[in-house]
């Protein structure tokens, strides 16, 4: 394996395997939070919205990975000075983020497994639909991970950064119509919902599995917005993330 491979492995080990071995309880939260929303929405809608809710669970898991990453990286940076130690080494920020981000996903594996089973039963997307779903989730993951990393490099106060990640998490994944169709949101609020990339992700996902029918213009717009957000965040993180302190 190339050195960068081992560097990625360091992040995976530190951010999931080692912690999980010692604090298995942490997993419970990552399993429960996407599934609890799903359950509530399903019950309230008397099963009507289970498809949307499953997709919402997927999107939320991906988004949560980035937000947890922000919290974990801030913790490693401020409380252990890990970022400083890694900066003064042959490692790179990309390897650092990649390993740590994969670590977050490993935490979500149980939740994702449940969702995949549910999706198989209730959504049953075709091959194209499944691929589209996968693409949206990947984009969502990249976006939230980039955002999480960039924010973590700015954090010098762990309390502040935990509060911040909760705020962003609420703004992007709880308020917007991720777990139900946007048509359920009354009009003036709908404009606010369109400020969040998760809304577009949910629209694409719902369209891919036939839960809503979007016009091709709306669909294209959703992809463009999502792509633009990802690329902008990527560029911002390349330019602004503080790998080296100022």
């Amino acid at each position: 394996m190339r050195p960068s491979g081992w560097q990625v492995m360091a992040g995976i080990l530190m951010n999931s395997i080692y912690a999980m071995k010692n604090y298995p309880m942490v997993m419970v939260n990552t399993v429960l939070s996407p599934l609890s929303f799903l359950t509530v929405i399903t019950f309230v809608s008397k099963g009507q919205l289970i498809g949307e809710a499953i997709e919402g669970g997927f999107i939320m898991s991906m988004f949560q990975a980035g937000m947890s990453l922000q919290g974990d990286l801030s913790h490693f940076k401020n409380d252990f000075k890990l970022q400083d130690m890694v900066v003064s080494s042959p490692s790179s920020p990309v390897a650092y983020v990649a390993g740590m981000a994969i670590g977050e996903v490993i935490y979500s594996v149980p939740a994702l497994a449940v969702l995949v089973v549910l999706a198989e039963i209730y959504l049953n997307p075709g091959l194209v639909g499944a691929l589209e779903l996968l693409a949206v989730l990947l984009l969502m993951f990249l976006t939230s991970v980039t955002l999480g990393f960039t924010l973590s490099t700015f954090s010098s106060d762990i309390i502040q950064s935990f509060a911040f990640s909760r705020l962003i998490s609420t703004l992007f994944s709880t308020l917007p119509p991720v777990y139900y169709p946007i048509s359920y949101v009354p009009l003036p609020f709908r404009y606010f919902a369109y400020l969040s990339p998760t809304t577009y992700a949910a629209e694409i996902a719902q369209n891919a599995t036939g839960l809503v029918q979007l016009s091709s213009e709306t669909l294209a717009t959703a992809w463009i917005v999502l792509g633009a957000v990802s690329i902008s965040l990527l560029l911002i993180s390349i330019k602004k993330a503080r790998w080296r302190d100022v």
Binding site: L13, M14, Y18, Y23, L82, M85, V86, S91
Partner: peptide, 20 residues
């Protein structure tokens, strides 16, 4: 600081992995 949830060996080992 060392991460409380890691062993002494895991701490040094992961540092070496960071170095490639």
């Amino acid at each position: 600081r060392t991460a409380p949830f890691m062993t002494a060996k895991q701490t040094v080992l992961s540092y070496l992995l960071w170095r490639g």
